[in-house]
Structures are given as C-alpha cells and as structure tokens.
Computed example of a mutant assay.
Amino acid sequence: MSISLSKGQRIDLTKTNPGLTKVVVGLGWDTNKYNGGADFDLDASAFLLHEDGKAKGADDFIFYNNTSGGNGSVVHTGDNRTGEGDGDDEQIDVDLSKVPANISRIGITVTIYDYESRGQNFGQVSNAFVRVVDAATNRELMRYDLGEDFSTETAVVFCEFYRHGEEWKFQAIGSGFSGGLTALCQNYGLDAK
C-alpha cells in the first residue's frame, strides 16, 4: 500500500523497505483549461547535493540535456514536452546503492520550460505529483500530491532523498521559486548561464 505524504513530511525509505536499492521517481501534472497558444513543457530535474547542500558541477545536475549523473546512479528517462496522457509524465531512475558517498541529498525538481515567452506558471498547473516506485516490483511506495499552492512560481522543488547514516529517507518539500531553472540552479549553487 502506498503512503500519501503531506508537505514537509519525512519518511524512512530504505529502513522500512529492506533490500530496496533502485527506485523510479515518477512526476506528473495536468494543465488547467487554459490556452495561451503553447503547450506546457514541464521538465523534471535532479540535483545531487553535497554536505553543504550545493551541487558542484554538471555531473550533479541531471535533466533532459544531461540524462545521467552521479556515476550513473541517477538517470533521467526522457523529456515529455506536453504532459499529455495519464500517469507519470517524466521519470528519474535512482540506484541508491550507487550514489557516490560524497552526495548527501538528491533534490527532485520541476520547472516550466520557456515560461517567460509563453506566459506560464504553476498557477496554471493542476494535479501535480511525485511518486516513488520500487523498480524491482513496480510497487508504489509513496506519493506526494503537490496541491494548488502556487500562483506565480515557475519552478518547484518537489522532494528530496537524503542520507541518514546508512539509510535513505524521503522528504516532501513543495517549495516554489520564481525565475524558473535559473533560480533553481542558483539555489543549488550552479551557474545556469
């Protein structure tokens, strides 16, 4: 049975699921009945964060143009440019057993591509969620439905995986940013130029 999380909630991931090493992070969304003349292209990304909470370089930033990082431990499976259809719109595969020892957190984010010229923001997005699935059994372990808390934001940190000793935990974040991918990169210590 999947656990439904609320904003800020933390949960043990590997301790409560012994033997769990590979997870699929599925992210999904719908757009409100709004037509600005362009599709909504939301993009999932992962930031591999060191002890200071910052990414250090390109290998620590996984997205549609850099689909693998952390020595192959985190892999973006592809870009969905419209969000059409049911289920996950984009997925990120994470092999927790292979995440480099110097990485203490993995931030999972979603941004709106080309939001400025398209006049788009998360106020026009509904039913946004992140779910964690056991890759071996395809069983959904947990789900965080983002809610309708955003109006002008163009980037959202959905969740983070983090190390606690030898175990991995999960936290539902739900923190919005204005400024799209550039703002997120700056937040995580990268230059987005």
Rank of each mutant, 00 (worst) to 15 (best):
S4K: 11
C159A: 15
K22D: 11
V94K: 04
L146I: 12
T77G: 00
I11S: 08
Y34L: 11
A135D: 14
I106M: 08
G107W: 00
R10N: 14
D93F: 07
K15N: 07
T77R: 13
R139V: 10
Y188I: 12
E166N: 15
G19I: 06
G179M: 10
K22A: 11
E167Q: 15
A58F: 04
N138H: 12
G78V: 09
A55N: 07
V99W: 00
F61H: 13
T21D: 08
Y34E: 11
R131C: 00
Q186K: 15
D41V: 06
T14C: 05
K98E: 10
I62T: 08
K56M: 10
I108D: 03
T182V: 08
K169D: 11
Q186V: 15
A128N: 01
G179P: 05
G179W: 05
G26C: 05
N138K: 14
S73M: 01
A46T: 03
N32C: 14
T21W: 02
N80E: 10
E140M: 14
E84M: 10
Q124S: 08
R81Q: 15
S68A: 13
G179A: 10
A136C: 04
I108N: 03
N35V: 07
R105E: 12
G174F: 00
E166W: 06
K169G: 09
Q91L: 09
D59W: 04
R143D: 03
E90V: 09
Q120P: 02
